[in-house]
Nucleic acid binder design. Structure first.
Lengths: 215, 215, 215, 215
DNA sequence: CATGAATGAGGCTTCATTCAT
DNA sequence: CATGAATGAAGCCTCATTCAT
């Protein structure tokens, strides 16, 4: 922490600091309960500066959502690019995704655990962010499973289904991880992948399961 | 609905109507953005009645959480009791769970999609409700998979892991269902079960998957 | 405490019970902080009955003030009548007055320790009550001191001065008595009388005191 | 007063102005009947400023009580220091005290004429303020009478008794003064002092009075 | 550029009072 | 006669946002 008094920072840097502060507060309190004063104080500047840079409370939130969803997508993509086969790419992508959700709690909370109905603009921005994240996962799932699972094709709708299930499970498992702090995130990813993965492959290979009927 | 003006209702009935209205508004707006006036208006009474019956905005929320978590647990248990084998019970319970999440959107949103940090009492109540729901799922998962999957035992921790994954996936899949209204909830349950189920069984049977390494 | 349910009491009795309850609550909380619900509950009846009998919160307060000031005046007069000389009457009256203030704390608090400005009607009623109490004291003081102190006459204005001082001192000494519960009220009266009495007599007899000047 | 619109005042000045306004309103209406809006309006600012500076209605009241009790004590002490003998100090202190009570009606009403039971914090603050005021008077009374009256010692308890009586009488005499506006405060002080003073001295000198018995 | 000072608007809560049975 | 049910009105407090320096 350098001396916070009377720093002259370039606009872009200061803006990022404000968004950092906003992310922290929004994730801790939720959009409505968050208070702009707290964000300004945490950013080490006065409130009018916050308004000068981001325009409004909504602007703050939108900036957070935009930046963090881009970060998540970027992490996902970067990891995925490293693999040289669809299966490897999928594994790497999901690992990165899971790591992001587990480690950047604040970002994920802002993106995925806000109550709905906080206003038109916010709902729109959140929906867009979630769509863009989900699209990445869906794409990798489709390719990964299709090629990894053998000759079986996985349609867009099915891939999207799997992507939703994976994302939801990953989200929920961050709660589980808080109850079991001794479990490493990598291990959790592996367990989740195993469960879904082996299931997907076998289901695609024809091993279906049907609900047992009472005779 | 009969004439809403100046109805005199017994306390117990009015109270349920108020909770109905509160559930609707809380699920639409989230705890903080919800406004007590709107709840009162939707319940067809004046604000002081709301306070006379439920005490405070927090009291309203707690009443919603309590009632709906009990409903969810009840639906889950009732369905599970119908089966005569662990596997059947698990299937029935999860079907009921999924149906509840898909159909009682409001209840589920209030239980599971609130921003964190809404205050001590609220956080505590939500945590308790979620624990009680998760405990039900975990119990059925452990028994169901253990006996359904063969001789393999599933420990409490593993069962809880699977339960979290299932609950999270189910939650997320309600979003998917909104994108695909033509899909019946029963079918969605079946797909989810298949994916997880077959995977779990095979994993327990020894078919593990490991991330592929670049050679 | 007899069975409070469904008593049929004559109007006058019930009214006194309500005033009892009101006095208790008003003296404990003050006019504004007092809540009609609490008065009704303490009186063992429903709120509409309170309004049927006393009309309004103001009516409740006015009834308390009127009844208690009459009681105080009555106690004062009754005691004073017992004496057969002005000096005895004064002593007896002041003793009774002091005993009343010390023992009927509720009554005295309602009469003398209300914030001003609670509304026109209330201010008027309180002023009237205080005037009537003070008039009693003034009358006895004038006669008692005039005849008790010798040939010296005490005018109305002076008597009123002494009466005010005595009443104020008596009021304040109830606080002192709370700090010294071991002191009997009778002793306190005696001390006060002694201090004022001897002073008055000597002053009237010519022993004046003047502020010392620096030379 | 200069143009009240949009004045920018430093915090400390504004704060005192707010307390001035609060004192006025609290003394006119009493704690509960006072309305924060009126205080804000009288202070020439908007309500949020009041809350920003003093925190709450309770905070406003506490600030008044604290400031005014300190003022009273200061006036009392300053006057007392001027004398060069216990008797002179007592006279000067009591004169100052009486002048304060007579002239700063608002301060005195807030300090001494609030209904009891306005809430824990308020009751505590008021009790503390009254204790501190009474302690000053008690101290001076003890020294002043002891040395002024000759060789007779006056114990703490007796001094406190006299102090309570004096303070109560002074309080009540402000009412008398309102009925006799032609009387100067200095004269009232002198009369009160004479009455109590001569009495105390003579009582301490052995001239006791006892209630007359009917033979 | 930066901020201390200021506010309009709105939300939670309470309470005296009345209505319909 | 008696009451459970109901509400209009008002008060405390907070917060996003802006002004004047």
């Amino acid at each position: 922490m350098t001396d916070k008094r009377r720093r002259r920072l370039p606009r872009s840097v200061r803006e990022q600091e404000i968004i950092d502060a906003a992310l922290h507060v929004f994730s801790k309190r939720g959009y409505h309960a968050a208070v702009v004063d707290e964000i300004a104080e945490l950013a080490g500047i006065s409130k009018p500066m916050v308004y000068l840079y981001l325009g409004s409370k909504e602007g703050l939130f939108v900036a957070c959502v935009r930046r963090e969803s881009e970060r998540l997508v970027a992490a996902f993509r970067e990891a995925a690019q490293a693999g040289d086969s669809p299966e490897r790419r999928l594994w790497a992508g999901l690992s990165a995704f899971f790591a992001f959700v587990a480690e950047h709690r604040g970002s994920w909370v802002v993106l995925h655990r806000q109550s709905p109905g906080q206003g038109e603009a916010i709902a729109e921005e959140l929906a867009a962010a979630r769509r863009s994240v989900m699209a990445e996962v869906t794409g990798l799932v489709r390719d990964g499973i299709t090629e990894g699972g053998g000759a079986v094709q996985l349609g867009d709708q099915d891939a999207d289904f799997v992507a939703h299930a994976l994302v939801g499970a990953a989200d929920s498992l961050t709660d589980w991880m808080e109850l079991h702090p001794e479990q490493a995130p990598g291990g959790v990813t592996l367990r989740l992948m195993n469960m879904v993965w082996v299931g997907m492959r076998n289901v695609l290979a024809g091993e279906v399961w049907a609900p047992p009927h009472d005779e």
